[in-house]
Write a protein that binds this DNA or RNA. Sequence first.
DNA 1: CAAAGTTAATCAATCGATTGATTAATTAAC
DNA 2: GTTAATTAATCAATCGATTGATTAACTTTG
Lengths: 210, 210
Amino acid sequence: MAEKDKIDKKEHLVEVAERVFGELGYEGASTRLLAQEAGVNMAMLNYYFGSKDGLLKAVVERRILLMRKGFEEIAQKDASCWEKLDQVVQLYVSRVATSKYFHKILFREISVMRTGSEVTEFVIDHIYGNTLHVQQIIEEGIKKGEFRAVDVEMTVASIFGTVNYLINSRRLASKMLKMDLLDDQVLQNDMKPRLQAYLQDSLKTHLLIK
Amino acid sequence: MAEKDKIDKKEHLVEVAERVFGELGYEGASTRLLAQEAGVNMAMLNYYFGSKDGLLKAVVERRILLMRKGFEEIAQKDASCWEKLDQVVQLYVSRVATSKYFHKILFREISVMRTGSEVTEFVIDHIYGNTLHVQQIIEEGIKKGEFRAVDVEMTVASIFGTVNYLINSRRLASKMLKMDLLDDQVLQNDMKPRLQAYLQDSLKTHLLIK
DNA sequence: CAAAGTTAATCAATCGATTGATTAATTAAC
DNA sequence: GTTAATTAATCAATCGATTGATTAACTTTG
């Protein structure tokens, strides 16, 4: 009972922090606000995570662990490279669309040059690992003659960049796409399938031999 | 002399602030550091720009004014839609590659939900204007039968997203592309033409009727 | 089982440091 | 000599972090 409450409270703080960090940025989110939003005493933040940076680390690690697997599994499937690539892209879009705050945090973390935070290294390694999976699928497709000999790394950057751009700048993207992406319903039901369809078409014409 | 010194000093502060804001983010860059890096007294910041937010606004407005024109000029040229699109993309990549700090600021500004800063609205309107130019060129190409009937807004988001991703996360991008993008020489001589060539190829296969 | 001992969780209060901003006094310019 | 530019000093507010005290829960002992 008490044990469960403790865990729930700590976990709850991490969940809330993901949203607050995502909305306000690392420096913009004060420890007081983080604690207040989670309904816990300020001191608990340091008691649980040692520091504000420790809390950010917890946020990032939690979500990254939840996301491990998936990419590897698809990569090892016995399917055509196109099928594998398509599945990976669909999965990536789904994930980003359902954990938007987290991906804002990720991109801000690798964008800002915060002096020597270990979180940054951790994030870069994680994302790089993800890009590598996609890269290898495309390279395999090229070697097998299934794909055109494109610039693989750029193609990967394009996939990640497109998704990132639309999700992390939702006010701008709302204007561009003429739909309210701040509304989760719209994001899930309208924008997500549209983005998936676009990437599918785009990659198909770009990669597949005609 | 004094008039000139004053202007130079003010202008210098804006230039330095662009770099510091770009490196550390808005909240991460303190007014003291901003003033110190520019070699001026901190009070001058408020004297010149009224507030920290005013300085950010000055940074953004200055660069945006420098960037006005260019897109419009190309859009009004008497050329094929493909030629116009190609030129716009080349120009965009060039600009982003030569003002990397600024584009970090732009994207962070539209990514973070800072409560009601007028700078945010300004930035969104500016970027949206840029995307509209590209969008109209593509739409014209489709209407003329020069391009395939693709998802125009998504195509535009893909162009901007790809460039943004590579420039704003240069540590990650350096790993992906296996080149040191923190080195301006490499960025200009290796990465920039490679990105331009990729976008050209990608858009060509995606848009042009075969 | 019950009293004593032990640990983890939580709190209000406060720490020194830093934040953005402002003041009053001084200097430079025309 | 008056206006504009610049400075050091200082402001209240807030920052992240820590303190000592208190509570709750579990363990040990007899």
